[in-house]
Design a protein around this nucleic acid. Structure first.
Lengths: 220, 220
DNA sequence: GAATATTTGTCCGTATGTATA
DNA sequence: CTATACATACGGACAAATATT
């Protein structure tokens, strides 16, 4: 069907946001009030509220009310996870998206990164070298995501954080099972990434990231 | 809340897909049967079905049933549209994601493109030169999306198609209101993109796309 | 084509758990 | 602690669209 009743509620919420009368963290009218105002049953209102909750638009708290939130990023993980489950896309294709976005983020980060961040990156890199197992994987992730966050592009950050959940087993597994040679290769990539972001060397930085993702791709 | 009843239904559907007992286009058990099997009320079942419908996982048809579909891409448009509405991300940031993904798609397309596609691209380019207004915008879009589809990466295609809806007014508007000089500049980019994809010249092809998006960005 | 059964769409009423004043 | 407001969940009823006989 196309003409769904519950879409009226979503349209209502959107218009209230557009008008400025509904803002983040604000409480929505109660279900009964919404039902009356929009001339719908509570059931239909609730179906709409559920979809919006699932989307990350709002959060419902029993006994209190429905509050506008803005956690839309979790939907990226849901959608792509479902696509993977239905085999509509492959892990390799998801990986290509990751590479494209992280490369872009890396270049953007080059222009934004502060000295504090550079120090933190060095710290994380050293941490990677001096640790093993889960600890190393954690430092690795922090290394990448510090750069991604430093890009300042909130959409890229959202998507990459969503994809992090999907990959945390898969890539983690790769890192655990790969040979020492592969691990050393990855460490050299990280070192180059670190050097190039400090030295603002975009070309070699891109190469390091490309090599990094090439190794990951090869282990899939 | 975290422990939502309706999530049981989503988990149920996911597990059926994983087991292979539920496939695309298949009909789900009726709402009443689901209610009985999962020991829930029909209302709760319906809330779950609605969220899944909204997600693009299934389609409900009155009098018939609920059928598993796989149109997850529409959720990308919804989520990003909502982020834009809430001003959590800017059009400029969305543009950066488009650039990153289209550039990746462009390079992938270089390796996949057939002679027929190249002919079609030439045709579209000529069509752009020889037309004006909405017709020109349409050819422009077709030109870009032929390349994107030629990339073969179904996730990139999904995301870009979702972003197309969001940008179709915004970019269309830019093309309508920009000066002749800007338009000529864009045409030169398209020409370079065409030449480089045929000549497998990745470096200059990337440059052409970068220039193209730089112009779009400048008009925002 | 018509009649009947099935299934989703919508609504209402009620009971319960939770948050808030 | 009490009372009120609110979301959560259930079950029943009827309408509307579809499928089946």
């Amino acid at each position: 069907m196309e003409n769904r009743e519950y879409k009226k509620v979503i349209e209502y919420v959107k218009s209230e946001i557009a008008k400025g009368t509904l803002q983040l963290k604000n409480k929505l009218p109660t279900e009964r009030v919404l039902a009356e105002e929009l001339s719908m049953s509570r059931s239909s209102i609730r179906e709409a509220l559920r979809t919006m909750e699932n989307m990350g638009m709002l959060e419902s708290t029993q006994g209190s009310g429905n509050y506008l939130t803005g956690n839309l990023n979790k939907m990226f993980a849901e959608s792509i996870g479902m696509m993977l489950l239905l085999k509509q896309v492959s892990y390799s294709e998801v990986n290509a998206v990751r590479r494209a976005l992280e490369t872009d983020a890396y270049v953007l980060a080059m222009g934004n990164i502060t000295e504090e961040m550079e120090e933190k990156l060095k710290e994380l890199y050293q941490g990677m070298e001096n640790s093993e197992g889960d600890q190393k994987i954690l430092k690795d992730k922090e290394f990448h995501y510090l750069i991604i966050r430093a890009s300042g592009n909130k959409l890229i950050i959202s998507i990459m954080e969503a994809l992090e959940e999907i990959y945390e087993e898969s890539v983690g597994h790769i890192l655990k099972t790969s040979s020492k040679e592969t691990k050393d290769q990855l460490m050299r990539c990280h070192k180059k990434m670190l050097e190039c972001i400090i030295g603002k060397d975009e070309i070699n930085g891109r190469r390091a990231l490309d090599e990094h993702y090439g190794i990951i791709e090869g282990q899939c």
